[in-house]
């Protein structure tokens, strides 16, 4: 509908420069430039390399997004930008760019929470999100369970990783298996040839004594170390490492814990909708296991298509459009980039 808000979203919290355009619940453009290849030889995202790449990519990515959507900056109702959490220097490039566009085009600006945007993007695929809902956000930087009462007003953190993020565990395990960075896609591929129950890797924070204090928290550091120990023991014994079995068993341990705790959160709060977002939501086993288990518990699971799960500008535009429609006031022009932006803050 033409009277729904037309919002442009800018995302630069990590290594993807994203510009998306959304009208209401409709995705019009999702332009992306990635510096992932520049980070590969470092085995992880190098903040300064990412920041430099954002500066180079932002103008051409904006051009592509506007062309793809067939709109101009003068047409948009608001500009939304990821204000946090994320890499400080990388966030700042996007925030400063968004301010430049907003000042020049005389548009309101919304500095929004990256994690809330990962939830909001599902609206583009499955329509309005029933509230309350439980959200599981899993990426290279985050692993969180949230209770979403009102996406425009705030989300309530239920739990998060106490050490590594799930995506980080994928990266580290990929490295020790000799697979490329980022580790998610190659592990997903290798796992298809392996047995998920070949090796019984630990499920972090699932023992009764852990559940008392960490019912909805995650831990993946011990799992990563267990995989490393298992692989090293094989290597020391001069035996070949069965990469597909290790990948499948590791992936199963991660997905098992993520889905079990997400469903537990739904049941504990009597909530029938689970939305999954973040780069790890692109993992095929996580998607399949979530659907299986949610079906058994009568929970509706919503997972956007993989391209919308990883970082992108459309998710920021989707949240921005939701905020505009909800009548939330825009941010001030002096809004800061906040690398540690709390989940309870959806827009600043």
């Amino acid at each position: 509908m033409a009277d729904e808000p037309l919002v442009l979203g800018i995302e630069t919290s990590c290594d993807e420069t994203g510009v998306g355009v959304v009208r209401g619940h409709t995705l019009l453009a999702d332009a992306l430039a990635s510096s992932v290849d520049e980070h590969a030889r470092f085995g992880g995202v190098v903040p300064e390399v990412a920041s430099r790449a954002h500066l180079e990519a932002i103008v051409p990515t904006m051009r592509r997004a506007l062309d793809e959507a067939g709109v101009t900056l003068a047409d948009v109702d608001a500009i939304a930008v990821t204000a946090g959490p994320g890499l400080a220097g990388a966030l700042l490039v996007g925030v400063a760019a968004a301010k430049g566009y907003a000042v020049a085009a005389e548009k309101p600006i919304y500095g929004v929470n990256h994690l809330a945007a990962h939830v909001a993007v599902d609206r583009l695929e499955h329509g309005p999100l029933p509230e309350p809902a439980i959200a599981l956000l899993v990426s290279g930087g985050h692993s969180s369970l949230l209770l979403v009462d009102d996406l425009a007003g705030g989300v309530q953190p239920l739990g998060a990783t106490i050490d590594d993020a799930a995506g980080e565990a994928f990266d580290k395990v990929a490295r020790l298996l000799g697979l490329p960075f980022p580790g998610g896609p190659p592990i997903d591929r290798a796992a298809r040839e392996g047995e998920p129950d070949a090796i019984g890797f630990p499920r972090g924070l699932t023992a009764p004594k852990d559940l008392a204090a960490h019912r909805f928290d995650f831990s993946f550091s011990g799992l990563k170390t267990a995989v490393a120990r298992w692989v090293e023991a094989r290597e020391r014994a001069g035996e070949p490492v069965p990469v597909p079995d290790v990948a499948a068993s590791f992936q199963e341990a991660v997905c098992d814990v993520l889905t079990a705790k997400a469903i537990d959160a739904c049941r504990a709060h009597g909530i029938g909708t689970l939305v999954i977002g973040g780069g790890v939501a692109a993992n095929s086993r996580l998607r399949a296991l979530a659907e299986d288990r949610c079906a058994k518990h009568g929970i509706t699971v919503r997972v956007p298509r993989p391209k919308l799960c990883t970082d992108n500008g459309a998710m920021v535009a989707a949240l921005g459009s939701h905020l505009v429609a909800a009548g939330v006031a825009p941010s001030r022009l002096d809004l800061p980039a906040d690398s540690a932006m709390p989940l309870t803050v959806v827009s600043v």
Partner: peptide, 19 residues
């Protein structure tokens, strides 16, 4: 210093593109 420097340049580039 890189971080501060980029603020001015990306603001200028964005405004130039928008206008």
């Amino acid at each position: 210093p890189f971080t501060g420097l980029r603020v001015g340049l990306v603001t200028a580039a964005g405004m130039g593109q928008a206008l």
